[in-house]
């Protein structure tokens, strides 16, 4: 394996670990909001690492730019959905709906 392949494998593995940690957080954290923290932040870092690893493997600037775009779109989806879920939960809490 070349040096870049080793580095790419490390990035992919670390990315996977962050996804795992995010899922552990989803299962262990006590309420909706804390779980959203785990999903947005850990998974975004996981996606960033996986995209970086794949860019290294692909080895072209265009692939890297495409993967960066995918990461940004992933960020956008994560932050918007997290905000909407949190807002929905807030509205329910305010209405006295115990969860």
């Amino acid at each position: 394996m070349s040096a870049s392949e080793v580095l790419a494998s490390l990035l992919l593995l670390t990315g996977g670990l962050f996804y795992l940690a995010g899922t552990v957080g989803l299962l262990r954290f006590p309420d909706v909001y804390s779980r959203l923290h785990a999903l947005t932040k850990a998974d975004n870092l996981g996606l960033l690492l996986v995209c970086s690893g794949l860019s290294l493997l692909a080895g072209t600037w265009r692939a890297a730019a495409l993967l960066a775009t995918i990461w940004l779109l992933g960020l956008l989806a994560a932050t918007v959905s997290a905000h909407l879920i949190a807002r929905h939960a807030r509205a329910h809490d305010a209405a006295g709906d115990k969860r």
Partner: peptide, 10 residues
């Protein structure tokens, strides 16, 4: 942020 929340989760 990712490292922080991952650490707290595990």
């Amino acid at each position: 942020g990712g490292v922080d929340v991952a650490w707290r989760a595990i």
